[in-house]
Design a protein around this nucleic acid. Structure first.
Length: 655
DNA sequence: ACGGCTCTTACT
DNA sequence: TAGTAAGAG
């Protein structure tokens, strides 16, 4: 029922509405509330803020510890909240005491180790949920399972304020009859296609299709992902990120409200940019992070034009801090986009009303947010001699004030927008490169030492214990960048939607194990790695490199350049069919860092070629940071779509 | 169920 | 890299 309708029926009704600021919805209370909850949940494990009110936790370590030191079977008093858990597949109802059967399941001594870990997870989660309630007065629901997708699924099964466990043995039964569109990621067009093109109505129906068949139709990555999902397998890791990757501010202008003058667009852009700027400043103050790209999105309509269905293009430029600058740049982006949108169309008459176009939504956002190299959180502090590439107040300011972009000016044609490059002086550029060089020299000795003690290239018994493998490799501390949680007071007086916590314990993901298996044939010199630089340290350098004629990556040595196929094949044949998507690896280049050399050159290395095991040998404080750089990556989707010519005639979904 | 305002990720 | 599309809360 709409609010207005309800007022008619119940004039006394109290309707809670989203706060308004600058003429638009203001979500800050909700964002802050989410932050509060995150700051509690992140105490017990690696934590990923998945949305304004959802969080994933990797509780593997906490559960392992509990199992080793205080397993449920020895507990004398059992947490009431844990006893209220729903355990999928547990013979419910039929008169038996639910709590009693849950207690038995949680404390079972003869259980599969995986289920014992889940039981520990259930206790930890119950405690966390109570803690959230106590400290914030928000309730939350949770799912406890062996990976993110199952945990997410379970978290929605018993709301509000309850938790659901997915024992390993219940996965198949659960998925067999689950409507395909209930799975995260399959709620939209992909799910529709699965239903109408393949006749797949439940997740179980997916089992009939070979991985190749699914890849043929949906591409290599999606195909493999689907094949795995059908079996409850997901290698998707909990990310360890408490803060958003971008900020945005937008507003729609439906129907008659559509903006038809540049002046009105400018007015609203000012409002939106003001909010954005405020939030960016807050992020800078609280979290010491800087955004580097400003993006403008709009939707528009055009009347009586041949291509009146053309979309209004998005435009972006380097972001300059300061409300006025953001406003100015956003307007320039808009004008560039509008010219492109209108094309040859008579782009005259500004200022006054026009009959040609209307803007039905506007938004500005800031992305590429990186932590300021703090000297404590950054690897750069190990580049000795100087604090870090720009850790001082001085250079921070330089970064912000002097990174002056040249957004499209009003008189340029739109095509120039695309080639607009920042004409930036890079304060501290020289020093930064120097640090990189000294550091690699310095590190050489250090790393050699490490290698002597613990040769990273030795292949050791890998596939023995997947749990151990997983935990060893996955274990990380919290993300240093995320320390500045919002500390505002709890908002006790808004209720309604409860928060939802999704927890997973990916105890039997195999990707870490696989990654380890692949390493053998690679060289292990970390030097190649450290001759690169923390991209967050010099984000603008990349743009600079782009503009530099003489910058060219020197060829990598042959040994580095091509990963051994033998190695891959061997590992492939050794591995069970169940493998996470990321592990269907080939030697495609999926990402590289590029950094200037002092002499104007640059190195460029494939992420693929970095031996993950070297990370374990780094100082613990920086392991997480480095690990984030070489997170498993997807295969390019451009390669083979099946060997037969037939695939050329298949629907070009997702290609 | 739907609109508004966000946000992330994959792909090209 | 910029830009688009999709999926989600």
């Amino acid at each position: 029922m709409r609010g207005a309708e309800s007022k008619q029926v119940c004039p006394q009704i109290q309707l809670v509405q989203v706060p308004v600021a600058r003429g638009k919805a203001d979500l800050s209370t909700y964002r802050n509330a989410g932050s509060e909850v995150v700051s509690i949940l992140s105490r017990k494990g690696r934590c990923e803020r998945a949305s304004i009110d959802e969080v994933y936790l990797d509780l593997t370590d906490a559960a392992e510890t509990m199992l080793a030191e205080a397993p449920p079977e020895i507990l004398e008093v059992i947490d009431e909240e844990a006893l209220k858990s729903h355990v999928l597949g547990l013979n419910s109802e039929d008169g038996s005491d639910a709590k009693e059967s849950v207690r038995k399941w949680l404390c079972r001594n003869d259980a599969d180790r995986r289920d014992k870990l889940l039981a520990c997870g259930a206790f930890i989660v119950a405690e966390l949920r109570l803690q959230v309630l106590k400290e914030t007065e928000f309730t939350c629901s949770a799912g406890i399972a062996h990976n993110k997708i199952l945990a997410k699924l379970a978290s929605g099964m018993n709301k509000p304020a309850q938790q659901t466990v997915v024992p390993f043995s219940s996965v198949k039964v659960l998925l067999d009859s689950l409507p395909i569109k209930k799975m995260k990621q399959l709620g939209g067009k992909l799910g529709d296609s699965l239903q109408s093109d393949l006749g797949v109505n439940t997740v179980g129906d997916l089992l009939q299709f070979s991985e190749e068949k699914l890849q043929e139709r949906y591409g290599i990555n999606t195909g493999t992902w689907l094949w795995n999902i059908a079996r409850g397998i997901s290698g998707d890791e909990v990310e360890g990120r408490l803060l958003p990757k971008s900020h945005g501010s937008g507003k729609t202008f439906p129907g008659p409200q559509a903006l038809k003058t540049i002046a009105s667009v400018q007015h609203w852009l000012h409002e939106l940019c003001e909010e954005l700027s405020e939030r960016l400043q807050l992020d800078l103050d609280q979290n010491k992070r800087i955004a580097h790209t400003l993006v403008l999105h709009a939707t528009a309509y055009k009347v009586s034009d041949s291509d009146s269905h053309k979309k209004f293009p998005s435009k972006s430029c380097p972001l300059r801090y300061g409300t006025a600058k953001i406003q100015e740049d956003a307007l320039s982006l808009f004008q560039a986009a509008l010219r492109e949108y209108l094309g040859s169309y008579t782009a005259k008459m500004q200022g006054s009303q026009n009959n040609h176009w209307g803007i039905t939504s506007l938004s500005v956002s800031a992305s590429k947010i990186v932590p300021i190299p703090s000297g404590t959180a950054s690897i750069t502090k190990y580049f000795h001699g100087h604090p870090s590439c720009s850790s001082t107040k001085q250079s921070q300011n330089n970064l912000i004030e002097e990174a002056t972009p040249v957004p499209p000016s009003g008189n340029e044609s739109y095509s120039e927008v695309n080639v607009t490059k920042p004409q930036i002086e890079f304060p501290g550029e020289e020093t930064m490169i120097k640090y990189a060089e000294t550091s690699s020299d310095q590190l050489e000795d250090k790393i050699d030492l490490l290698n002597d003690q613990n040769p990273c290239c030795s292949s050791t018994n890998q596939a023995c214990d997947e749990f151990t493998q997983e935990t060893v490799l996955v274990s990380t501390s919290g993300n240093e960048h995320c320390s500045g949680m919002n500390q505002s007071q709890p908002m006790k007086n808004y209720s309604g939607e409860e928060s939802c916590v999704t927890l997973s314990m990916p105890s039997f993901n195999r990707q870490e194990q696989k990654r380890k298996a692949v390493k053998d044939k690679r060289t292990c010199s970390i030097l190649r790695f450290f001759k690169n630089q923390d991209p967050s340290c010099a984000p603008q350098k990349l743009e600079h490199v782009e503009n530099t004629e003489d910058v060219k990556a020197p060829p990598l040595s042959p040994g580095i350049q091509s990963r051994s196929n033998n190695c891959l094949d061997q590992n492939r044949s050794e591995l069970p069919k169940e493998r996470p998507p990321e592990d269907a690896g080939d030697s495609n280049v999926c990402g590289s860092f590029q950094i200037e050399h002092r002499r104007g050159g640059a190195w460029s290395y494939n992420i693929d070629e970095i031996d993950p095991s070297v990370i374990d040998e780094l100082p613990p404080e920086i392991q997480q940071e480095v690990r984030a750089w070489i997170r498993p990556h997807k295969r390019h989707n451009t390669v083979k779509r099946g060997s037969s010519i037939a695939h050329y005639f298949l629907p070009t979904k997702n290609t």
